Amino acid sequence: MRIIRTTDYDDMSRKAANIISAQVILKPDSVLGLATGTTPLAAYKQLIRWCDRGDVDFSEVSTYNLDEYRGLTHDDPQSYHYFMRKNFFDHINIDLSRTHVPDGSNPDADAACADYDKLVHDAGYPDLQLLGIGNNGHIGFNEPDKYFSKGTHCVDLTESTIKANSRLFDREEDVPRQAYTMGVQTIMYARMILVIASGEAKAEAVRRMCFGPVDPECPASILQLHTNCVVIADEAALSQCPEA
């Protein structure tokens, strides 16, 4: 695991965008695993600017998002389908038929998860998987558990995750209580994993991810075992870690 220490959120975001753009430039038909939430927003904006300038070309790229809330239609403003189009896909030259997000509108959880697993498998798994990290150490929506998950599955979100995500909803009670998410094993199949973290609220989770025991109670800790994992985090997020 390689740790890149940055000064602040903007520095973190630019360095993450640099790595993602380099992946696409070196392999134009890259398979990218993407994440939602507030942490990657500035990195996406930087990639949009570079695409507008002609510095990076997404026309042959395929993408597979980590997760989606169960029960939301694709055009629901709180869905991750909507989030990705609003914040990234609609602003770059990507073929929307090459973009994939779990189908939260499918009430049949087993079918929705199996279908998504097949899509990711048939794509050969991501060349680069972008991850954020939750305050409780979750990656995707893989919450603390007694074991590491395998394939895409339906999860019951913890109260801490619901509370953290409520900032994006009008009311906390509006946050869905379940989601479909890639499993930890699926994430680990990516050839490169890029984790980004910012802010003091993430400090304990980042410490446990990088320096704690490998334990499903902190799902991100398994990334210590990946052969090509890069963590880009700002000073605040690394405040509980030894100097990198």
Rank of each mutant, 00 (worst) to 15 (best):
D76W: 10
I232Q: 01
G33Y: 06
A35M: 10
T73L: 14
L194Q: 02
K15A: 13
I162W: 05
F89V: 03
L131F: 07
E159R: 14
I222F: 07
V231N: 01
I4G: 06
T39I: 01
N136D: 15
K202Q: 05
N18G: 08
F89A: 01
V206P: 02
R49Q: 15
H81C: 07
G140L: 03
A197Y: 03
M192C: 09
R2T: 14
L72N: 15
T99D: 06
S221Q: 04
N136Y: 08
P40T: 03
Y44P: 01
T186Y: 04
V120F: 12
Y116L: 12
A109L: 04
Q129D: 04
A35H: 10
Q46D: 05
S221R: 02
V195W: 04
I94T: 07
D115K: 08
V56T: 04
Y180E: 05
V61W: 03
M84R: 01
S62W: 12
H100W: 06
V155W: 07
Y9K: 08
P213V: 00
F89M: 05
L96P: 12
L32E: 06
T161F: 10
Q23P: 00
S221P: 02
A16D: 06
I193Q: 09
N136H: 03
A114M: 14
L157I: 08
D170I: 00
S62L: 10
F211Y: 15
N142E: 08
D170Y: 07
P216H: 04
T99P: 05
G137M: 06
P216S: 11
G37A: 14
H121R: 14
A112E: 11
H121G: 05
D122H: 13
V31T: 11
L225Q: 14
A236W: 00
C229I: 04
D95G: 10
L128S: 10
D145R: 11
I139G: 01
S149E: 07
H153K: 10
H74A: 15
Q185V: 00
Y64D: 11
A109K: 11
L131D: 02
